[in-house]
């Protein structure tokens, strides 16, 4: 019966959900959590490294969302709005901890990237696509982890959560051109780091 009740509630639109919560049924907020949890965790886990802080921030995000629910104007999807709260909460955390969201030194590696890429393009015996095979998944995960918090987040929002540029723009507050530019750089940096780590592994 509870499951059926839950499933019926799952069919509620964002507006119906919010109205019911604002009317006082806080239990409905559980549906909001279940609907947005993947997105929230995806942002928190990409931006925050410390497991305890991740837990606190995730709770903080939902408490903020609950308290600000009356101010939600339906200009975006509820999930996007909660995504924005998540991103801003993480940004505040990083600012408090003085952790940069973007590493300036990333750009200085461009020259060595060109060299690595040239070497790979010349080496016909090892097609680059082999780099992304499943057995190398640990290396790829670890290389993703090494990226700046902002790059990791944008990559995850675009490729994992399959959000549009517009939605990423709403969440991050960055202009669309900047989001695209960061995505290009993030993908390039990840690919180059993988090529470099592949080289090291071969030695």
């Amino acid at each position: 019966m509870q499951l059926l009740d839950f499933m019926i509630r799952e069919e509620l639109t964002d507006k119906e959900l919010i109205n019911k919560i604002l009317e006082g049924d806080t239990r409905i907020f559980e549906i909001v959590i279940s609907k947005t949890q993947h997105l929230v965790l995806s942002i928190v886990y990409k931006m925050i490294k410390n497991p305890e802080d991740r837990k606190d921030i995730t709770q903080e995000v939902y408490l903020k969302a609950y308290n600000k629910l009356a101010s939600f104007k339906f200009n975006a999807k509820l999930s996007t709005w909660i995504g924005t709260i998540t991103y801003n909460t993480c940004l505040n955390y990083l600012a408090r901890k003085k952790i940069p969201i973007l590493n300036v030194t990333d750009e200085e590696e461009n020259e060595s990237w060109e060299l690595i890429e040239r070497q790979f393009l010349m080496d016909k015996s090892q097609p680059e696509i082999n780099l992304f095979k499943k057995e190398r998944s640990k290396i790829i995960s670890s290389e993703i982890d090494k990226l700046s918090p902002l790059y990791k987040t944008i990559l995850s929002l675009y490729h994992k959560q399959e959000l549009s540029y517009k939605e990423i723009t709403t969440i991050t507050g960055l202009p669309e051109g900047t989001v695209k530019s960061y995505l290009y750089r993030a993908r390039k940096q990840l690919r180059m780091n993988l090529l470099a780590s592949y080289k090291k592994e071969d030695l």
Partner: peptide, 26 residues
């Protein structure tokens, strides 16, 4: 190689929690 990279990011496991987030928040 970029398409393979994209599909790898997509196939990455979702973060799993060792606690019940809904209960904690509610």
């Amino acid at each position: 190689s970029y398409l393979a990279l994209s599909s790898f990011i997509k196939d990455q496991a979702e973060p799993t929690l060792d606690y019940n987030l809904s209960h904690l928040v509610l």
